[in-house]
Design a protein around this nucleic acid. Sequence first.
DNA 1: GAAGTCAGTGAACAGTCGTACTCTCAAAGC
DNA 2: GCTTTGAGAGTACGACTGTTCACTGACTTC
Lengths: 222, 222
Amino acid sequence: MYPFLDSENGCLLNGMSHTTGIRQAQKLKTRQALLDAALELLEHQSLSSLGLREVTRAVGVTPTAFYRHFDGTAALGVALVEETLGSLHGMIGAILADTGDSEERLDRSVDLITRHVTEQPAHFRFIAREQHGGVGQVRAAIAAQLRGFALEVAQVLGAEPESAGWDREDLLMLGGLYVDHMVLTASALLEAGPEGEQEVVRVARRRLRLVTLGRAHWLDRP
Amino acid sequence: MYPFLDSENGCLLNGMSHTTGIRQAQKLKTRQALLDAALELLEHQSLSSLGLREVTRAVGVTPTAFYRHFDGTAALGVALVEETLGSLHGMIGAILADTGDSEERLDRSVDLITRHVTEQPAHFRFIAREQHGGVGQVRAAIAAQLRGFALEVAQVLGAEPESAGWDREDLLMLGGLYVDHMVLTASALLEAGPEGEQEVVRVARRRLRLVTLGRAHWLDRP
DNA sequence: GAAGTCAGTGAACAGTCGTACTCTCAAAGC
DNA sequence: GCTTTGAGAGTACGACTGTTCACTGACTTC
């Protein structure tokens, strides 16, 4: 009945106490399998061409079972957005909390993005691809998440002494600029592949340096 | 035989001299009709989900006729890229050639982009959507065109007195930065719609101002 | 331990898809 | 004026799509 489930997982589930519920755990597992399969299939196509049956076939489940978890492929896309970007919200602080030298922090930011992209390329590819993709609901979900990131960045930057005298709107502009360049860098890394990675990293660093320079002189004159 | 062709065009074609060839003109007209129909259909979906039959149906042509013009939807996408961005190469100069006050030039640049996007939204939407889309050939075609734009911008900027002492690599970085933000602004304008246009324009101006500020202080210290 | 819930099955539905044929007939070339 | 060319028509093919329905049977609940 659960063809993608091996005995190991079955034992693991049996080990759980009665509080969780075997049934619910199974359902979540199938749901996750659908998400994983979809993410893999989306490596070479975009969401608007992803077939419902295509996903269920990859998981080993009947097409009908899909509807137990999502209304359609668009809903699956929204879920993928939350899975990908929802877990990244803490990372912003980790990058920017480092109050060391500006140049060093800049390099470390780019390195951290590079590492995340190379570790889970499919997730970032999905975001880059569907950010301007054909499914409106997914675009909206990504935009909402990225707006949240921009706000976080703006808050962190606003607390720094370099941002004295900045109004809220300019800080949001700067935060959005950083976030957009994160996504742009991630996409460029995916497109370049391992051999072109260093070149992308170098350019990304220079871009960030230029933006940081602009930030330092933002209030030079009225 | 050419159901989308009205008599007016027929007369127009008859008026052409024998050099052109009625037949070739008709073929080009069908080809253009396919491109236009595809562009319209791509407003609510991405290229990887665009059906060959879907396009021919919109034009009023047999699916078989499609192959007389393109190998498949991917080739049509590449043609769309060249149609959209190929005609824009002169615009770069028109934007940046204005050697007036920096602030004024900046505003005029954003206004020019805004005007172009509102005048032909489908073209820009297509580029923004397929820049990171699911069809590799189209991604490559867009990337090549944008690289060309970045090079043009870099050349124009390099000729200005503000760029004294800049090496070629930094100029390319700056050119790419400008181009990427053009695309980003275009996409934001499309997403915001007419009511949100002014807000997008304001943020885009600030971003450009910050980048220009960073440019002015790029060589301040080694 | 009996009754109920519900994740997943299997069959069937009416469409759509890309592509391969042959055929037509107006324009092009001599 | 004849032949050649080629853009598009028409038909057919097998494969795939999203969605529906009644169903099974392992888990849950009382």
